[in-house]
């Protein structure tokens, strides 16, 4: 409890003196201490008139306790949910995950096209390739984590040698 109070105080100090980026850093550090690592955060670029898009990333949990991604939010999105997609008899079915996503201690999970994703809805602006946008992921134990997403036309592929353009998903 003391540690949390201390963290809050420090955060307040950081925000006061260094603004938001420093606050982000502080929050990230807390999560790093708990062994959370987030990589290759990407958002699909939006075609004209598309008010929704998907966010994808790798979450590594190097810690000793399970972490749960419980929520997400972003300034550019009026409403954000955690979703899953399942291909059923040729039909892609999408549904919100009310309990979020569990990342086991020592585990890794990939949110990727065709599966788990952050669903950004009610987009307030188009998202163009190469743009960087910040979103906040909320975990049950380490709280809010600011994550910088890169906008790309073909997300979820940068981990496959970097030259694939199809939606190959086995790595």
């Amino acid at each position: 409890m003391d540690r949390k109070a201390g963290f809050l105080f420090l955060s307040a100090l950081y925000i006061t003196f260094f603004g938001l980026p420093a606050a982000s850093l502080a929050a990230e550090n807390i999560c790093h201490q708990q062994g959370l690592e987030i990589r290759q955060a990407e958002i699909r670029a939006t075609p004209p008139n598309a008010p929704v898009t998907g966010g994808y990333l790798h979450i590594h949990n190097h810690g000793t306790s399970m972490q749960r991604l419980t929520a997400a939010s972003a300034d550019f999105s009026g409403h954000t949910e955690i979703h899953q997609m399942i291909l059923e008899a040729g039909v892609m079915k999408m549904s919100p995950l009310k309990d979020g996503i569990e990342i086991a201690a020592g585990g890794h999970i990939q949110l990727k096209p065709g599966g788990l994703h952050i669903m950004f809805m009610q987009l307030k602006q188009p998202l163009a390739p190469s743009d960087m946008h910040q979103a906040t992921l909320t975990f049950d134990k380490c709280g809010d984590v600011p994550v910088l997403f890169k906008v790309t036309k073909t997300p979820g592929q940068s981990d496959s040698a970097g030259h694939s353009t199809g939606h190959t998903h086995q790595h």
Binding site: P47, N49, A50, G54, H167
Partner: peptide
């Protein structure tokens, strides 16, 4: 459909790339 978050843009991108 145009409000499609993933399958449609992915498929159209893939098809044009292919």
């Amino acid at each position: 459909f145009t409000h499609c978050p993933e399958v449609c843009p992915t498929t159209l991108n893939d098809l044009t790339n292919l």
